[in-house]
Write a protein that binds this DNA or RNA. Structure first.
Lengths: 330, 330
DNA sequence: CTGTTAGCGCTTTCAG
DNA sequence: CTGAAAGCGCTAACAG
């Protein structure tokens, strides 16, 4: 059996209440007793039982994080921000890998609830209605990060996807490109799918450029999906001088397909990605991309789930120009 | 206030003991009462308080995972394996990002202990003596994954680093290379540093090839470190036809430096990495590497920390030949 | 300044 | 088959 507050009390010849006060830095004891108790604690190697504390209504100092794919660079960065900020504030975070479909989420919700987490961060991925309802019912703070609610009305922290996509497209446009291919997430995805598509369209429209449907494809943000779509483009004989992929992974997939097909980037084709994960930095050539401040978003999400505040936080995106975008020779 | 076992008992007109039995699938009640209680539970939306359960000596079904860098592809894969297996077994995992130096580890250990986790997985990174001592003192199961104890004697699951490095070098040798550069972790690192170096040396020796010290450098496994070392090699005018980097990230850094310097891979230089993370797959050209089964290692580590068993599990590595290694024209 | 005591929500004897 | 009651380790009144 682990050693408890009673053992300390006995050893220091005081009551457990006194020990509790000292452990919790409250007032109401002489410096003499404090010393005695601290000594006993050290000698016994006592550490308070967080379970018991939680039971008497004390904050559990634990939050839960739901992520669709912990092993991705994207989620990793988010998690890192959350975790660092949590540590800073004395909290621990339990991670839940909900899987690509977010299928396992419901089970996690019960578990998190039973463990009495103080808050839940829902990172990316689509929230189903079931999940939203359950989350609301749980009656504990929820904040969404890198996504926003399709159901319910949870606070969220994210960039403006449409504007970010608009700027990415503009970057290509400003380099003189007019035939621009677009690779995005599904249009049915109201968070990361449609808005980015709309940003693209808006930028094209603003320049009075026609939208060529044969230059538009939708995938699932993954490397493979990007690679496949690009391969299709070239096999279909599509002609374009630039391409915007709405995730770095897809963009790197594009780079891959281009490499295989002997298309030189950026000489034959300019490519721009989205996210600014390590993947864009490691790409050859280094990928120009529009950055989401993932780490900071994680930090903000943590803060927001603990202290209540603004119900939506819009983070600023920014362009990171590396080597995959080149001006079109005219 | 959340609803408790008492509420259920009252609503179902039974004692809390009965409710407890039913919730825990024990025996000792009629099917009639069971139905009544289940109904009450559903209507009230009751869910047991894990804190209270833990307090009465029940397993907390929680484990802690210490990782030096959660946002890396490497740690991500490990974590994914751990988490999936945990979920499968009804456990939750709290992640601790110990930072590159593992400096924050001590604080985490206290926290994990206070939360009464049932076990701790120490993932990668060097364990300091302080940490080892504390971990032992905690008196809860610890298993190390992708690393092994330099202090203490914890069970671990990992590949045989020396053999893996030996095989990687052999791959280069078998392709006819004789002047092979080596980029590794620090020799002082007894886990991932020295053994891989030794594997390299052994393979060279076996072929009676001389070891050229000017072709050997040590870094920190990161992309930047790999890139820098490769840049140094070419600036020093070192001459070699193949290179072995003991992490995919470093290998990709090498690819980068080569790209910048106009060195073609694999035509001018063959490169082999280590880990088989997504980075190797996404590299251009796709990186040949020696794979560690990171995901499975995570799973095994979880199993081992829960059920006691073998004190060391050696996982098998294997070669993944992609496009960065080419036979030397003779 | 310090101790006593009543729970927190749950599991588990021990009686019936 | 079911209930009463003790107690897990801790905090928070309430007394002194």
């Amino acid at each position: 059996m682990a050693i408890t507050i009673k053992d300390v009390a006995k050893k220091a010849n005081v009551s457990i209440a006194t020990v509790s006060r000292i452990v919790n830095n409250q007032s109401g004891y002489s410096s003499g007793t404090k010393e005695k108790v601290l000594k006993a604690i050290k000698e016994l190697g006592y550490s308070p039982n967080a379970l018991a504390r939680g039971l008497v209504g004390q904050p559990t100092r634990t939050i839960g994080v739901l992520l669709p794919n912990v092993s991705s660079l994207f989620a990793g960065k988010l998690l890192e921000g959350i975790e660092d900020e949590a540590k800073e504030n004395g909290y621990s975070v339990v991670v839940c890998n909900t899987g690509t479909q977010g299928l396992r989420a419901m089970g996690y919700l019960d578990m998190l609830n039973e463990k009495r987490v103080e808050g839940i961060i829902y990172g990316s991925g689509d929230m189903t209605k079931d999940q939203g309802d359950k989350l609301s019912a749980l009656n504990i703070p929820v904040v969404m990060v890198a996504t926003k609610p399709a159901y319910g009305h949870f606070p969220y922290v994210k960039v403006n996807d449409k504007k970010a996509a608009f700027d990415a497209t503009r970057c290509l446009l400003d380099h003189g490109h007019t035939r621009i291919a677009f690779i995005g997430g599904q249009l049915e995805d109201p968070i990361a799918g449609r808005p980015r598509y709309e940003g693209f369209i808006q930028a094209m429209n603003e320049r009075d450029l026609p939208i060529d449907e044969s230059l538009i494809k939708f995938g699932d943000f993954s490397f493979n999906s990007g690679k496949e779509m690009m391969t299709e483009f070239v096999e279909e004989g599509a002609s374009f001088t630039a391409l915007f992929a709405t995730s770095d992974e897809m963009a790197v997939g594009v780079l891959h397909a281009a490499y295989e097909k002997g298309i030189r980037v950026p000489d034959d084709l300019s490519v721009i990605g989205y996210d600014n994960t390590l993947a864009s930095e490691m790409a050859i050539p280094p990928l120009t991309t529009v950055a989401q401040p993932l780490y900071e978003m994680g930090q903000k999400a943590f803060q927001r789930v603990i202290k209540t505040g603004a119900t939506q936080i819009e983070m600023k995106h920014h362009m990171v120009e590396r080597e995959t975008v080149k001006s079109r020779r005219t």
